[in-house]
């Protein structure tokens, strides 16, 4: 049983680390700001969750486990708000998204309902 929990937590920690690195690489590679938010989201959700779950299985006492669960809860609550506020600030600041297969720069729609669907592909 001990061995099983150890192996599982090792797997969780390793795959969490892998997802964190994938998110960081995506943030470096993706072409514009809006796509980068998606790559950063991989780190904020699955990477963080897997690492925290792995730590949860290694927790020596109940107090530590509760603290890890609280960190998990706070990250789940705050990371989408932070991501949305950055994205909305970029939108309000007229940062134009790249759309379509050709990654053409689409003008930011000003009026509600004026954007063309699907972009310029």
């Amino acid at each position: 049983m001990e061995l099983f929990a150890d192996t599982l937590s090792w797997l969780l920690l390793l795959s969490g680390g892998a997802f964190v690195i994938i998110g960081a690489v995506g943030t470096l590679r993706f072409p514009d700001f809006y796509t980068r938010t998606h790559a950063a989201g991989v780190t904020d959700t699955l990477g963080a969750d897997l690492v925290l779950l792995g730590m949860l299985l290694q927790a020596p006492d109940a107090m530590t486990a509760i603290k890890i669960l609280l960190i998990f809860f706070f990250l789940i609550m705050t990371s989408p708000v932070a991501t949305h506020s950055v994205a909305h600030a970029a939108y309000a600041g007229r940062e134009a998204p790249l759309t379509g297969k050709l990654l053409l720069r689409q003008n930011v729609p000003l009026a509600p309902g004026a954007e063309d669907e699907g972009g310029a592909s």
Binding site: A48, V51, V86, A89
Partner: peptide
């Protein structure tokens, strides 16, 4: 853009949280 920087710094902070936890263990 400044938004890229803010996004990167926010994500850096999330990783710092994880790093602190892992270092504690």
């Amino acid at each position: 853009t400044v938004y890229d920087r803010v996004l990167a710094v926010n994500s850096f902070g999330t990783k710092t949280v994880l790093l602190l936890g892992v270092l504690g263990f």
